[in-house]
Design a protein around this nucleic acid. Structure first.
Length: 444
RNA sequence: GUUCGGAUAGUGUAGUGGCCUAUCAUGGAGCCCUGUCGAGGCUCCGACUCGGGUUCAAAUCCCGGUCCGAACGCCA
């Protein structure tokens, strides 16, 4: 508990049963609302954990304190010193009878938006004034859940023998191809912001670290313009030696299920604020072959998808809907993708190289993750790079790691924001990032 | 990038050619009010995205710019 001159308790730590009559407490936070009824005045103070009502009865209160309180401005920062009084008439069953209220810093008015939920604001308005938006209980709840998601991912992977790593975000060359990169100036040369930790994770497999994970930013310079894309996102990545794609799919589904469980258990009040009833996904997830997915699309729509084509948005939605109707589950894998439409490092099956040991983790609303067993043989990998039209010379730093003892390995990457937006049922990915970066937004 | 839609007080909105000195809510200022919890009552404050055009008359119709939203594409 934080305890200093200005605060002894968060608002959710105040319980009239535990705090003795006459005992002085201090809460600090923002003025949420002032309701001046004439002979009685209520000041609601909000902090990170909730709200508390400060009650001032005119006849029983110092007149200077009373007048000062009823003129407090919304969202000003105050510290309240007082005693706690149980009351059936007060929210949460108690109220604070103040002996002193300190104005620590005033707020201008009008505010850029309403913080009480009476008037909605558009996303753009909210993002422009994110510091105010985050004061709203709903927005705050999302980021408390985000914290719990990241915490439980770290916890789960650490408990399962994974070592946390951090790899460079400034790189010399394109990693996987397929997506555009942001060029930057790096002293006298050109460099890029990394699209994925993929190649570095794989190099670490040669190092003998065996099982690694990384939670970090990835950058994509695509000019996409949708509710589920960002140009800067957070990726949760693992790589695991001596594992095949089925091994790492199991880690992924177990992790996801554990994360949901932790959020359900540890974020009750936040889920309540967001009016969410979380359902913990049941493992193992359905593993649908790419070929079966194509068949579903072709039988349920006018589309005629050929084997070898990627699934578009409409196709993905059709499959997700079909799986949900059949199994009642939102999460499933699509496995055994054509090697041709997967990156060069995805390994083909020994008996049929046309099909790869790859998978996508899907939620019925969108793709959440992709992974594969990786090619670990130098010659094959080099050929695959060439076959994709990339220059192997640019990949020496990566390819060399495959020459001196690279174990077979597999891995995946989960889009942290997509995991969060499907979990919290928000419509726009920007809602789950504090300061989102998209094609149009670079500030704040 | 393509297609479609949109831009009105600080915020969210109503308003399809004259009834607009522009609606409502929220907010701000002030007054009244002793149990509010979206407090209530009264008074006041505050806006038509920009530029051009059509018309006796434009928030409203037309053209262009800027900005924004949605779907798709690309992608995770």
């Amino acid at each position: 508990m934080l305890s200093n001159m200005l605060r002894t308790h968060y608002t959710n730590q105040i319980s009239p049963q535990e705090i003795g009559e006459g005992e002085q407490i201090k809460v600090a936070g923002w003025v949420y609302e002032v309701r001046d009824l004439g002979g009685i005045c209520f000041v609601v103070v909000r902090d990170r954990e909730g709200k508390a009502q400060v009650t001032l009865v005119k006849k029983k209160t110092d007149s200077e304190l009373f007048d000062f309180s009823r003129k407090l401005i919304r969202e000003a920062v105050i510290s309240v010193t007082g005693t706690v009084k149980p009351s059936d008439k007060a929210p949460n069953g108690f109220e604070i009878i103040p002996s002193e209220i300190n104005l620590l810093n005033n707020a201008d008015s009008p505010l850029p938006m309403d913080t009480t939920g009476k008037v909605e604001a558009e996303l753009d308005t909210r993002l422009d004034a994110r510091y105010i938006d985050l004061r709203k209980p709903k927005t705050n709840a999302i980021f408390r859940i985000r914290h719990e998601v990241l915490r439980s991912v770290r916890d789960f992977l650490t408990c399962n023998g994974f070592i946390e790593t951090t790899t460079p975000k400034v790189v010399a060359t394109a990693t996987e191809g397929g997506t555009s990169l942001f060029p930057i100036t790096y002293f006298m040369t050109e460099a890029f912001l990394n699209q994925s930790p993929q190649l570095f994770k794989q190099i670490l497999m040669s190092s003998g670290m065996d099982n690694v994970f990384e939670i970090g930013p990835i950058f994509r310079a695509e000019e996409h313009d949708t509710r589920r894309h960002l140009n800067e996102a957070t990726s949760i990545d693992i790589e695991s030696s001596f594992s095949d794609h089925y091994d790492v799919m199991q880690i992924l589904e177990d992790m996801l299920s554990q994360v949901y469980l932790n959020v359900k258990q540890n974020c009750e009040s936040q889920l309540d604020v967001l009016d969410l009833d979380l359902e913990v996904p049941k493992t193992p997830f359905l593993k649908l072959k790419y070929e079966e997915a194509i068949n579903i699309v072709n039988s349920e729509s006018d589309e005629e998808l050929e084997w070898g084509e990627d699934l578009g948005t409409i196709a993905e939605n059709l499959v997700g809907q079909d799986v949900f109707e059949r199994t009642g589950q939102s999460h499933y894998f699509i496995i055994d993708w054509p090697t041709e439409i997967k990156p060069f490092y995805a390994m083909g099956y020994e008996d049929n190289a046309e099909i790869s040991k790859s998978f996508d983790l899907m939620h019925r609303r969108m793709e959440l993750a992709s992974g594969a067993q990786r090619v670990h043989e130098y010659d094959i990998l080099k050929n695959r790079i060439e076959a994709k039209g990339l220059n192997p010379d640019n990949f020496d730093f990566y390819l060399d790691a495959f020459r001196y003892g690279m174990p077979p390995h597999s891995g995946w990457g989960v889009g942290c924001e997509r995991l969060l937006m499907t979990m919290t049922e928000v419509d726009n990915i920007r809602d789950v990032v504090l300061f989102p970066r998209d094609r149009r937004r670079l500030s704040p």
